[in-house]
């Protein structure tokens, strides 16, 4: 981006980022097997205070109990995964880094399938999954800690830890009852936003909100992650602490996302890259853009997943089918980008 950002551009940018997910959500509240018109959606939302009086009951329930929690979940997870992916790419100065680079997805999946095997309730499963996701990253960091901790060592340790946990996931599948547990494990692993409830949303939202707010506040300082080691050190900021904080936030956000809806691939890779291609490498713009675009992207893809065919399509399949061509289109048009 060579052009100086004018005040008008900035206003449009901020307004656009706020309006985009709101509009997407409003439209997607209408779409589904049972169509709700925009005025109905608006009046349902307005009628929340008096418990839905004066609004068609079916529309009210569809909006409030079925679609809204699911769309909120989509927004939160999309935003969290995009931020985490963005951060890991900057942290490792590697365009191939994803939210899963440090093995968090493997750990969280293992926690979840173990909970299914042991027959835990949904809420307990969410907590166990989150915990195992964090444990996996902790193990990665401990494994990488040595005489010389380079970013490459951490990435390699993360890949090892990821495959270790996916082996454990396979082990759990092997042990699972083939009639009931195995299908539900397999389905969970494909990722779905179907299980969204306000309770699970609230539990999952806490780590994500805390992480994303911290990252948003750090947005200028995160630019230091892309500098060379000695430039970063001589900037006078505590770069090690910054990296650790970034890893913590990205891990918490990812683990919490996966604990709510399983592994949703691609969002954390594609959305940050799209943002970089459009906005350059300044995290002051990238963090808000990743939140907004990541959330919007998942809202749209999930709506498509649940309404395109009679049976719901697993969302990971769609994120890739929609995301990959769009990404390639953008890359060819913009001529790629450099980290």
């Amino acid at each position: 981006m060579n052009t100086k950002r004018s005040p008008l551009w900035k206003t449009a940018y901020i307004l656009g980022l706020i309006l985009l997910p709101v509009i997407a959500m409003l439209i997607c509240l209408c779409i589904g097997r049972y169509f709700v018109s925009v005025p109905q959606v608006l009046s349902s939302i307005a009628a929340r205070a008096n418990g839905g009086e004066g609004v068609e009951r079916l529309a009210y329930i569809t909006v409030w109990n079925v679609r809204l929690p699911r769309l909120l979940l989509a927004f939160i997870v999309g935003a969290a995964l995009s931020c985490a992916g963005l951060l890991f790419q900057s942290l490792f100065q590697n365009p191939l880094a994803t939210p899963d680079t440090l093995g968090v997805a493997g750990g969280a999946s293992f926690g979840a399938v173990l909970s299914i095997l042991l027959g835990f309730s949904m809420i307990i499963m969410q907590l166990v999954s989150f915990t195992f996701g964090c444990v996996a990253v902790l193990l990665t960091m401990l494994a990488a800690k040595g005489k010389t901790t380079s970013m490459n060592t951490i990435v390699l340790s993360g890949i090892m830890m990821g495959s270790l946990f996916s082996a454990l996931v396979s082990l759990v599948k092997f042990c699972a009852d083939q009639e009931q547990q195995l299908p539900s494990i397999t389905y969970w692993l494909m990722g779905s936003l179907q299980s969204a409830t306000y309770t699970s949303l609230l539990i999952g939202l806490i780590p994500i909100a805390v992480s994303v707010v911290i990252l948003f506040l750090l947005r200028w300082r995160l630019n230091l992650l892309l500098l060379s080691e000695e430039e970063a050190v001589s900037s006078g900021s505590n770069i090690k602490a910054l990296r650790l904080l970034a890893i913590l936030c990205a891990t918490a956000a990812t683990a919490s996302s996966i604990s709510m809806c399983g592994q949703i691939g691609w969002v954390g890779l594609i959305v940050p890259h799209m943002c970089r291609m459009m906005l350059g490498n300044d995290h002051r713009y990238l963090i808000p853009a990743s939140i907004s675009l990541g959330g919007t992207f998942l809202i749209l893809v999930d709506t498509l997943a649940r309404s395109a065919t009679a049976a719901e399509i697993p969302i990971s399949i769609l994120t890739a089918i929609i995301g990959a061509p769009f990404f390639l289109f953008l890359m060819r048009k913009k001529g790629g980008w450099s980290l």
Partner: peptide
């Protein structure tokens, strides 16, 4: 530092601002 091999994806103004990191609050 030696100028080759440095990350060059920021603007000149942004780069100069990095020199003021110690004066800019962590969350600012």
């Amino acid at each position: 530092p030696q100028s080759h091999g440095l990350s060059g994806s920021y603007t000149v103004l942004d780069s100069v601002l990095f020199g003021m990191t110690t004066q800019i609050g962590v969350f600012s």
